[in-house]
């Protein structure tokens, strides 16, 4: 490249600002409020929740229905804390910090409520593939078996898994009704509204209209509901089949991040594979393009990976049928 060409060529490098990141101009900072958590004073910006404050202090707070990318529904009540002056416990995930609040996150009352919530969930739903909840149950000493002592069995949401399409399975025996999938299908992400909570009380359940199969419903198979499900009630068919066959083995799995090859948006995919077969695709929650959401192609459209390079049909041995 001669000197002249270099002058004419557009400068493609992004200028890097020098020095430290400039501070915001005065007056634009959000006002802060001071609250007391377990006797420690912490200052958080106005609008922050009690959960934000707890997390900033490194206090591990159990949550089931809460997710950073979704509107808090405060339905599970696993995150309740004791707020001074309040008759009842308050949900940390949605209650905003107010100046002068004083909360306790590990009092006798808080521990009892958290233990009971976990016990209730485990006594009614199958939490066998929710390791995080099992850890919390151990921490709070939950004993779900005490509801089934004696002859009568407690009511559960046990039911056969709904396998009505090739992409994902709805195993509602594992559902804890956290509302996350409904939110992801609705205004928090996909705006498809294929599912909603139907029924009432213990019979409340996630359902399409008239409980029709997914292919008849409004579902667009973005799989964003699977991504937010905390208990594996919504699960990739690939993962479900491996688990059913007893072949799901996390020791043989690895994860790799890549960029979706389909369109120009550039979503980050986290591809999980077992024995070189893709078993699940997610996107990081903190990824600014996706916030954890994908479309049907990025989520499920990886059948071509591992297909023969010449486009021939694959036979059972993995070699190209045309060669035989």
């Amino acid at each position: 490249m001669n000197h002249r060409d270099a002058d004419l060529a557009p400068d493609l490098t992004v200028p890097v600002p020098r020095g430290p990141v400039p501070a915001a101009p005065p007056g634009t900072e959000r006002p802060r409020v001071e609250i007391e958590v377990d006797g420690k004073t912490i200052s958080v910006e106005e609008g922050a929740t009690l959960l934000d404050a707890c997390r900033r202090l490194g206090i591990d707070t159990p949550t089931v229905c809460y997710l950073e990318t979704l509107t808090p529904v405060n339905a599970c009540r696993a995150c309740v804390v004791e707020l001074e002056g309040s008759r009842v416990l308050v949900p940390a995930c949605s209650r905003k910090a107010e100046q002068g609040m004083s909360i306790r996150t590990d009092s006798e009352r808080v521990r009892l409520s958290r233990r009971m919530v976990l016990e209730f969930l485990a006594s009614g739903s199958d939490l066998s593939i929710s390791p995080e909840l099992s850890d919390y149950m151990e921490r709070y000493g939950a004993e779900p078996s005490r509801y089934g002592e004696g002859g009568s069995e407690p009511a559960t949401v046990e039911q056969p898994a709904k396998v009505d399409n090739e992409l994902y399975v709805r195993d509602y025996a594992k559902c804890v009704l956290c509302y996350k999938c409904v939110e992801a299908c609705g205004t928090d992400a996909q705006n498809t509204f294929a599912i909603a909570v139907a029924g009432r009380g213990f019979d409340a359940h996630i359902s399409t209209e008239f409980d029709v199969d997914l292919p008849e419903s409004a579902c667009v198979y973005c799989g964003n509901c699977i991504a937010v499900c905390p208990t594996g009630a919504l699960i990739f068919k690939s993962e479900h089949d491996l688990r059913q066959a007893g072949q799901w083995d996390e020791d043989r799995q690895r994860e790799a991040d890549t960029i979706c090859p389909y369109c120009g948006v550039g979503c980050t995919l986290t591809v999980r594979s077992q024995d070189n077969q893709i078993v699940r695709v997610t996107s990081p929650l903190d990824q600014e393009v996706t916030a954890g959401n994908l479309c049907i192609k990025g989520r499920f459209g990886w059948g071509f990976v591992g297909a023969p390079a010449d486009g021939g049909t694959e036979d059972g041995n993995g070699s190209c049928g045309a060669e035989d």
């Binding site: 089931v64 529904v73 405060n74 339905a75 599970c76 009540r77 696993a78 409520s113 009971m116 919530v117 209730f120 969930l121 006594s123 009614g124 509801y147 009568s152 407690p154 009511a155 804890v176 009704l177 909570v197 029924g199 009432r200 009380g201 213990f202 019979d203 409340a204």
Partner: peptide, 20 residues
Amino acid sequence: RHESCGQCVPCRVGTVRQHE
């Protein structure tokens, strides 16, 4: 148990366990 809306866990499951 019959009238619980089913939204929060303490009431959805608690009213059932109490009744049982």
